[in-house]
């Protein structure tokens, strides 16, 4: 069983593991020739099934095993995230599967270039020397062996193929409504605010009752998304309009004419005032806040903005697809969140 890869996109990888970590402490990582899959199945709350193209995070990637070159690992996300964070300023980072005292572990080897003797020469300005402006002279004429090597060892468990054979991605019927989400930070801050309002004035013991923090998320096929919370004392909702309902691809979906979303298109209006045409689900506000944590992958650069689509099965399920852009534009990476929903 061998796995070795160098990481070429440390920032993305770190943000990915950090956002997955907010949903659960352990990830099932499946390494194969085609994809890298991260799956989080917490005891309760939202499941994530992420399928990443190999070149979205790795380069020079080799995986070999007796089970058809597939390796299944159970990885503690907190340790992995912590290890990856220490690689953010690295010149190179390599991840490989190895063993120490018969315990399997993922070894992350990081090379960090350090400006030679920068601290000794300019003690007073040591903190400003990280920009490396005075480094080129030494690296050009110096020994060239100035890198500091950091090794982080992350304990893992190897999962047998039988163990993972019973894990299946949830199945859902065709969605009633699908819609592209507004900027996630906006959505996150509003849903966080709603959840906070729902919990205000409640003793911390009672606040854990999930019935209080149920958010209702609804959307129609005319570009409207509505987030609302209702208690006996109040009812608040925020409505977004002019969002995009992506067209279904005829090559992927058969029978568009009978598709539930086609029927939903007949109902409702684009200003979101009509009561008709909404598909809605009830979700836990705190769980939703954890899901929204994926927004960090989008970053601030517009070109890298990840696209998030939400699929509604009325009163039944909510599925969030997060598409990550890839360099070659072919192999898309998709994170699928199966958001746990509650009946009314």
């Amino acid at each position: 069983m061998r796995f070795k890869a160098s990481i070429h996109n440390i920032t993305t990888f770190t943000k990915l593991t950090a956002s997955l970590n907010s949903l659960g402490p352990l990830a099932w990582v499946k390494l194969s020739d085609e994809h890298v899959c991260f799956t989080i199945i917490p005891e309760q709350g939202t499941q994530v099934w992420a399928v990443l193209s190999i070149d979205s995070i790795f380069e020079t990637y080799t995986v070999q095993s007796a089970a058809g070159n597939v390796i299944n690992l159970e990885v503690p996300l907190t340790s992995l995230t912590r290890a990856l964070k220490s690689a953010l300023n690295a010149t190179s980072a390599q991840l490989r599967l190895t063993k120490k005292d018969s315990a399997p572990l993922l070894a992350l080897t990081i090379a960090v270039a350090n400006a030679p003797n920068a601290h000794a020469a300019f003690p007073a300005t040591a903190a400003n020397n990280d920009d490396g402006f005075d480094a080129p002279f030494d690296s050009a004429f110096g020994s060239g062996n100035r890198e500091t090597i950091v090794t982080q060892e992350i304990p893992v468990r190897v999962l047998a193929p039988d163990t993972v054979a019973g894990l299946h991605e949830p199945q859902c019927r065709e969605p009633d409504v699908h819609i592209i989400l507004p900027p996630l930070l906006q959505l996150k801050s509003i849903s966080d605010r709603f959840t906070k309002l729902a919990m205000a004035g409640v003793k911390s013991g009672a606040a854990t009752a999930p019935s209080r923090t149920r958010l209702e998320v609804a959307a129609n096929m005319h570009g409207c998304l509505r987030l609302s919370i209702k208690t006996d004392a109040m009812s608040i909702s925020s409505v977004w309009t002019d969002l995009n309902n992506p067209e279904l691809d005829p090559s992927q979906v058969t029978g568009i004419a009978e598709h539930p979303s086609t029927r939903m298109k007949q109902l409702g209006t684009a200003d979101g005032r009509s009561d008709e045409g909404w598909a809605s689900v009830r979700i836990d506000g705190r769980d939703w806040g954890k899901v929204m944590s994926v927004g960090r992958l989008g970053g601030r650069v517009i070109a890298c903005e990840c696209e998030c689509a939400l699929c509604f099965c009325h009163d039944h399920a909510l599925i969030l697809y997060v598409y990550l852009p890839s360099d070659n534009g072919e192999d898309e990476s998709v994170l699928t969140y199966y958001v746990s929903s509650y009946s009314a």
Partner: peptide, 16 residues
């Protein structure tokens, strides 16, 4: 075993 803390080794050039 998965709760075991990270083992970190930093190899520094003695010339540093």
């Amino acid at each position: 075993i998965l709760k075991h803390p990270l083992v970190t080794a930093v190899a520094v050039n003695t010339s540093d």
